[in-house]
């Protein structure tokens, strides 16, 4: 794992499991643009507002990679990697996921070291 690679590990409400799988698995298939906007907006329009600047940055400059999607029941995991400073964007993204109703299970040590 590199300095700029982090885990996304969340538990999601069972009732919305399919939508969450679509969102996290979609990230791992490179669906970061309008797909992600639509999915976040469906959960909570305020979450999308918080994500607005980060999303612009991801699409225009940093192009992060999400990969290694895993599912165990309603616990979803993947890895995320981006350029220097990506940890800040990811911290925002995790808040966004919480606003959408997920519980974030892992705050990476690497990420906390940066903070």
């Amino acid at each position: 794992m590199t300095n700029n690679q982090f885990a996304v590990d969340i538990t999601v409400p069972q009732a919305q499991l399919n939508e969450w799988v679509e969102l996290i698995n979609g990230l791992c298939e490179g669906q970061l643009g309008a797909y992600l906007e639509e999915r976040l907006e469906a959960f909570n329009p305020k979450a999308l507002e918080l994500m607005d600047k980060v999303l612009d940055d991801w699409l225009a400059y940093s192009h992060p990679q999400f990969f290694d999607f895993e599912q165990q029941g309603n616990r979803l995991r993947c890895q995320a990697e981006g350029p220097t400073g990506f940890h800040r964007d990811l911290a925002v993204f995790k808040k966004v996921l919480e606003l959408c109703g997920a519980t974030v299970n892992v705050q990476d040590n690497t990420l906390l070291d940066y903070l």
Partner: peptide, 11 residues
Amino acid sequence: FLKENNRKEVV
């Protein structure tokens, strides 16, 4: 294809 890497407004 466009929705993967462009904001909704751009699409």
